[in-house]
Computed example of a mutant assay.
Amino acid sequence: MKTITITDVANHAKVSKSTVSQYLNKRYEYMSEKTRKKIEETIEELNYQPNIIARSLKQKSTFTVGVVVANILHTFSTQVIRAIENYFYEHGFHIIVCNADDNPEKEKNYIEMLRAKQVDGIIIFPTGDNLDLYQRMKSDQFPIVFMDRTIQELNIATVMLDNHLASKLAIDRFIEKGFENIAIITTSIIRDISPRIERIQGYKDSLASHGVPVNSEYIKTVNADEIPVALSEFFELEKPPQAILAGNDIVLNEVLRYMKQHEIHIPDDIAVIGIDDVPYASFYTPTITTVNQPAIEMANLAAELLLSQINKTGKEDTSVHRLKPTLLSRNSC
């Protein structure tokens, strides 16, 4: 069968090739509804498939962006990916999603693969251990945006949560409910992963603002599989905590599982708040108070920043954009 070309579409629809090209690039402002409809019908009738490679060569763009997440298991990560995909789909781009598993070597391999595929830009949840690679991308003026984590010295556009405020909202709630022996547990802070460090610092600062001394025994940073042991250590203390702040959704899952297995009742035996809302928080028994990240708003901002770099529109933005969390009050505290 003969390959249908853009010229065939134009001849059949009795319009110019440039008009068909404008239609394919969703630039409808210079054509009538009748013309648009005619081109649409012709494409369907002829079963025309645009030559993506030829289009990429002509426009010097693959209309593809990469998203490298640190850990796709986080609810926040999947929410962000979904919103980024939706944003770029509406702008005529596809996305390639890669999961680095918080492994710098895996992250490096994925970034190099995406660049070899000539994606137009990448949104990265950086592991923090590939500084030379990030710097090289910046030196190459390759479009890049960091999400969720920052590396200050690189001056790369970044979108992340106000993590200090996230901890403050939780601590304020605990204090309001009369708790002072408050613990925090996060996943490992190896490689200085900024959200975890900032949430711990926010926890310390918020306790201090209420005149509550910081007890180092109430602070745990461990790998996910070590969380049950860390919780047992909390409850073996002479003064066990009255409340626990779970630093992210993975930690919250482990905390709730531990409480269920050991028949520790929330909130009667211990109060719990998690940073990151999770789908089950509103119907778990009891319902779980969480600090919610504005994931869709953050994703849209990151996508806008990346597209601006790709299209070279506007002034270069190397800011760290911090969006505000909200406390979703429920029955666990």
Rank of each mutant, 00 (worst) to 15 (best):
Glu85Ser: 10
Leu57Ala: 05
Ile84Tyr: 02
Tyr48Gly: 06
Val69His: 02
Thr62Trp: 05
Leu73Met: 12
Val65Pro: 02
Ile53Thr: 09
Val69Phe: 08
Asn71Asp: 15
Thr75Gln: 12
Thr64Trp: 01
Val65His: 06
Arg82Gln: 14
His74Arg: 08
Gly66Thr: 06
Thr78Gly: 07
Pro50Trp: 07
Ala83Gln: 15
Thr64Ser: 14
Ser56Met: 08
Leu73Gln: 14
Gln59Arg: 14
Asn51Trp: 11
Lys58Phe: 10
Phe76Leu: 13
Ile84Ser: 02
Ile52Arg: 14
His74Lys: 09
Ile84Asp: 01
Gly66Leu: 04
Phe76Ala: 10
Leu57Asn: 01
Lys58Trp: 00
Ser61Glu: 09
Ala70Ser: 14
Gln79Phe: 01
Thr75Ile: 09
Ile52Gln: 15
Ser56Cys: 10
Val80Gly: 02
Val67Trp: 00
Lys58Thr: 12
Ile81Leu: 06
Tyr48Cys: 04
Gln49Phe: 09
Ala70Phe: 01
Phe63Pro: 00
Phe76Val: 12
Val69Met: 13
Ser77Ala: 15
Asn71Thr: 06
Ile84Thr: 07
Arg82Leu: 13
Val67Gly: 04
Tyr48Asn: 07
Ile81Tyr: 01
Val65Trp: 03
Ile81Cys: 06
Ile81Trp: 03
Lys60Leu: 03
Ser77Gln: 08
Ile53His: 07
Arg55Leu: 04
Ile84Lys: 02
Ile72Val: 15
